[in-house]
């Protein structure tokens, strides 16, 4: 298994990974304790303070309905976290299954799966996602599923490559010669040893899922108002671009910091897993 002492020691010394982990941990705390942290309920309308610029009362200003921007950003953290994790969970699962089948059995299955990957990669992913959403309708669950179903190709390729090389190693050959079943070899012998690059890809995948969700919500086909999401808050920012810069600036910063956190963590894990891969 890759989570050995060596890895832990290296990752603790890796400043980038630790900074990323810090950001992600803070986000988790914010998302979980949104009720306690947010100064106002996210949908409370305050008609006396419509489009108010940042003040001590409303640290990040208010929107067209007088709702507190800071509170909505805090509640939005949960949305982006859950979309990121569920979507990546789905894509990683699909990618691992198809990659494992393809790498272990090779032959016809391999050819079909890899062709499928090629075809999926031909679609501009944003087009495919939007098209599916147009047909099934926008909701947070549909978005998670659609992002997951359209972003598993990288993981499938990684897992396949790992399987191809690990299958030839002595301990796997020994298991085969002892008559172990295919399932036992795949799940017990090969898969645990193929997890390292998957972990990196999944961490980076959360970052891109957060970006996609915010883009979809921004276009109005993601998380639907009045539920707060960083993306749909930016839609209001665009609608009021001439008068209320704070509606555009702050939610975008939340997205930027979140995505950077996952990217840093992912890159840090990669460096710690295999220092030779460092670029």
């Amino acid at each position: 298994m890759f989570l050995n002492e060596d890895f832990v020691k290296r990752i603790r010394r890796n400043r980038m990974a630790m900074a990323g982990l810090g950001i992600v941990a803070i986000l988790f705390c914010v998302a979980i304790s949104a009720n306690q942290l947010a100064p106002y309920p996210p949908s409370r309308i305050d008609t006396a303070n419509i489009l108010a610029p940042p003040t001590w009362k409303h640290l990040l200003g208010t929107d067209v309905l007088g709702r507190d921007v800071l509170s909505r950003i805090i509640y939005g953290a949960g949305v982006s976290l859950s979309v990121g994790f569920v979507a990546v969970g789905i894509s990683t699962l699909i990618g691992m299954i198809l990659g494992a089948l393809s790498g272990y059995y090779s032959g016809l299955i391999d050819r079909i799966v890899m062709r499928f990957v090629d075809v999926m990669l031909c679609f501009p992913s944003f087009f495919l996602i939007l098209a599916v959403i147009a047909f099934v309708g926008p909701s947070i669950w549909n978005i998670m599923i659609v992002i997951g179903v359209t972003s598993w190709m990288g993981v499938a390729r990684l897992v396949r490559a790992e399987f191809l090389s690990i299958r030839e190693r002595d301990f796997v050959q020994a298991a085969i010669s002892q008559g172990a079943s295919d399932a036992r070899i795949i799940f017990l012998h090969i898969l645990p040893n193929a997890m390292a690059p998957v972990l990196v890809a999944a961490t980076l995948g959360i970052a891109s899922a957060v970006l996609i969700e915010s883009g979809l919500s921004f276009l109005g086909i993601g998380v639907q108002p009045p539920d707060p999401s960083w993306g749909n808050m930016l839609t209001e920012g665009k609608d009021n671009i001439e008068i209320a810069w704070w509606l555009s600036l702050f939610p975008g910063m939340a997205i930027l910091i979140t995505v950077m956190g996952y990217n840093m963590l992912g890159e840090g894990i990669r460096d710690s897993l295999d220092p030779r891969l460092r670029r």
Binding site: K238, G252, V259
Partner: peptide, 13 residues
């Protein structure tokens, strides 16, 4: 690094 993380529509805004 920032370029990888920045949402393009936010940059546009």
């Amino acid at each position: 690094f920032i370029g990888f993380a920045i949402p393009t529509f936010w940059l546009a805004l």
